[in-house]
């Protein structure tokens, strides 16, 4: 499976948000989730791929080509949704389709109408008068109507209710029924990713902290809950973060498979959720798991 997108030690300093040596590959036919704290550089990464921001260092290969050379032509094969999209505030939803259509050779008016109806979008209302959720849905309809091979979505689920999020996930799954296409989407709602993401990349302060197949990632890490005794034993050098509360200690440890023998009795081992992984990784590392 060829990679539709490859980032090779990507670095960029863009005011407060910067990226340092990010390597990421998005294979065709998959959905990759991008998670990270506010200001971790998720939007910066997506904008670099799209050529909205000039690159400081590293290389971006889009559909096998260097993104810097064929920028405009390559963007015909990408569907992009910005964090809180503004598009053309004065235009009506149906006019938006008409205006964007000439830019994309494979634009399909019927698909645009079908998705707008599926999202219950009022076609005659001006974009600026839509709610935040509907504005996001309109931007998604635009990005999904020209058979884009690569979808870059910056927090498409913010402002959507659970029902609408489920419909969005259905749409993304439908996109990758064609093995030649792929989706890279950043979100704060990790329960969405837990369902459908094939690969996950976790960004913290501009660095790619964890990346890989979602299932492998969740199975190779473990949450260990117990008392202070957890810190005495050999567990300490497996721990990559944790938290001390009045109820006891929670540690995030690597190598879940071989942890059983190291557990002091009474300690509990659980599978972490993606949110746990993002929350606990590098948290209180100095105080809890200093080697």
């Amino acid at each position: 499976m060829a990679n539709l997108l490859e980032l090779r030690n990507l670095s960029k300093s863009h005011g407060a948000f910067n990226l340092r040596d990010v390597d990421l590959a998005v294979p065709a036919g998959t959905i990759t989730g991008l998670i990270g704290a506010n200001g971790a550089g998720k939007s910066t990464l997506l904008k670099l791929v799209l050529g909205l921001l000039p690159l400081d260092g590293g290389e971006i290969r889009l559909f096998g080509e260097d993104a810097r050379l064929g920028g405009a032509r390559l963007r015909q094969r990408i569907g992009f949704v910005q964090e809180s999209p503004t598009l053309f505030p004065l235009l009506r939803v149906d006019e938006l389709g008409e205006v964007v259509a000439p830019f994309y050779p494979r634009w399909d008016r019927a698909t645009y109408r079908r998705i707008c109806d599926a999202f219950e979008l009022p076609r005659k209302t001006a974009f600026a008068r839509l709610s935040q959720g509907s504005r996001m849905k309109a931007a998604l309809a635009l990005a999904l109507s020209h058979e884009a091979e690569l979808l870059l979505l910056d927090e498409p689920t913010s402002g959507l209710d659970p029902l609408m999020r489920r419909d969005l996930l259905d749409l993304l799954l439908e996109v990758i029924q064609d093995e030649g296409r792929a989706v890279l989407f950043s979100t704060h709602i990790t329960s969405d990713l837990e369902r459908v993401a094939d690969h996950v990349a976790i960004l913290k302060a501009g660095r790619l902290v964890l990346a890989g197949a979602k299932d492998d990632l969740l199975e190779s890490w473990a949450l260990v809950r117990g008392g202070e005794e957890l810190l005495e034993g050999p567990l300490k050098d497996r721990c990559r973060g944790g938290e001390r509360t009045e109820l006891g200690l929670t540690l995030l440890c690597e190598g879940a498979g071989s942890l059983a023998s190291l557990l002091p009795d009474g300690a509990l081992q659980e599978r972490p959720s993606l949110e746990d992984l993002v929350y606990f990784h590098d948290r209180g590392k100095e105080s809890l798991c200093a080697r």
């Binding site: 390559l74 015909q76 992009f80 910005q82 053309f88 964007v100 830019f103």
Partner: peptide, 10 residues
Amino acid sequence: VEGFMASLPV
């Protein structure tokens, strides 16, 4: 609007 325009294939 310039942000959106720049994201178009032009």
